[in-house]
Simulated assay, not measured.
Amino acid sequence: MRFFLLISMLSGLLVTGCIKKHLDNPEADILAFKLNPSETTGNTIIDESSKKIFIYLNSAAYENGVTPIIEISKGASVSPASGTHITFDQPVYYTVTSESGNNQKTYEVVVIRIGNWTFNFEDWEINSDSQYEYPVESDGTQIWSSGNPGAALAGVNQSPGSYPTGSTASGLNGTKGAKMTTLAGTATSEILGIHLIPGSIFLGDFNTMNAILDPPTATEFGQPYEGTPARFTGYYKYTPGASFQDENGNAVPSETDKCSIYAVFYNGPDRLNGSTISTSPQIIAKAIVPNGSQTNGFIHFDIPFTFTGVSAGSNTQMAIVASSSYEGVQYRGAIGSELIIDSLRIIPE
């Protein structure tokens, strides 16, 4: 009996000695940033690609400040702490430290309050991690996104000129504009069956968490809009690539690529995405630039909104979307197709 007891004790010691010490969680992410819905005009966006938290506040909440409830990675800590009242008389940053203490991330809180619906694409910044360009407003606020974060995940060379969307000095009247180019797929995207990467730009955010598993839902379209839109105007220049190809990378000689430019006014706060932007029952009105074929220089468009009969609620949103390949969301188009847009405007009633 003592022999078996001794064996049991030794076995227990051996098993205990073999159990590895608990490894602290290395993650340092903000998973949720919760505000009182009565204070907001749109859902909060946590953009991991830029380490920014975009919040959409009504005037009272902006003036008085808010008290966010923050969810973070297991075992991590955040400063300022969850439940701390913050105001916006100076920049607001949150720093998350992982449970292991080895990793830190700092997020900037950006309050989106759009007042001017004219976009000239004169000011651009570069993402510090992946080195792609994105347009900002004159005060530095980012309200536009693109497919560039997805292209970065697909292994596009990390330099500003290598991405499908960026600035150009060949905008309207020699000013800057936004240029989109349909690129060939990368070695990584080919594994996923993606043979081309269209250039795109849109009001909203690119959700990198969805980019691999469900790419169409990664594009989250829209920014809060007050009032009723009447017309969508602007300028564009388009040159299609030489050879249209289908989603399998096969040439389709009978087809020529086209660009896509449109605006959608809809009920929020939930944003539309690449799967819902055309068919959602949230849509109140659309303004779609027709044709999209090759142009001879810049073309001016002035498109009235067509209303669906859906009534506007209290959290209306406006999406503006442009792409160098009109079927790019299905990965159909022509490599080399190039679209330049400039001086876009939503004119209210």
Rank of each mutant, 00 (worst) to 15 (best):
A178F: 04
S189L: 01
I191A: 13
G171W: 09
I212F: 07
K176N: 15
I197W: 04
G174F: 05
N173T: 14
A184Y: 03
N173E: 13
S167T: 07
A187F: 09
H195K: 12
N207I: 06
L192W: 14
L213D: 14
M180K: 08
S189V: 01
T188N: 13
L192V: 11
P215C: 08
A184S: 10
L196K: 00
F206K: 05
G171Q: 08
S167P: 02
G171M: 10
G171P: 08
G193S: 06
S189H: 04
P216R: 03
D205A: 15
N173C: 13
P164A: 11
P164W: 05
D205L: 07
T182I: 00
T208P: 06
A178P: 08
M209Y: 15
S189G: 05
P164R: 08
A184M: 07
L203T: 11
A178N: 07
N210E: 14
H195D: 06
G177N: 05
G199K: 08
P198A: 09
P198D: 04
M180G: 03
A178K: 05
G185Y: 00
A184Q: 10
G193Q: 07
T188Y: 14
L213R: 12
I212D: 10
N207C: 09
G185V: 04
I197Y: 04
S167C: 09
G193E: 03
S200R: 12
L196Q: 00
P164Q: 07
F206M: 01
A187P: 01
F206V: 06
H195C: 00
I212T: 08
N210I: 10
T186L: 04
G193W: 03
I212W: 01
T175Y: 11
G185R: 02
G166K: 00
E190N: 15
G166W: 00
D214A: 13
F202R: 03
P198M: 05
T186Y: 02
G174W: 03
A178H: 09
L183W: 02
K179A: 10
T168R: 10
S170D: 15
L196G: 02
T175K: 13
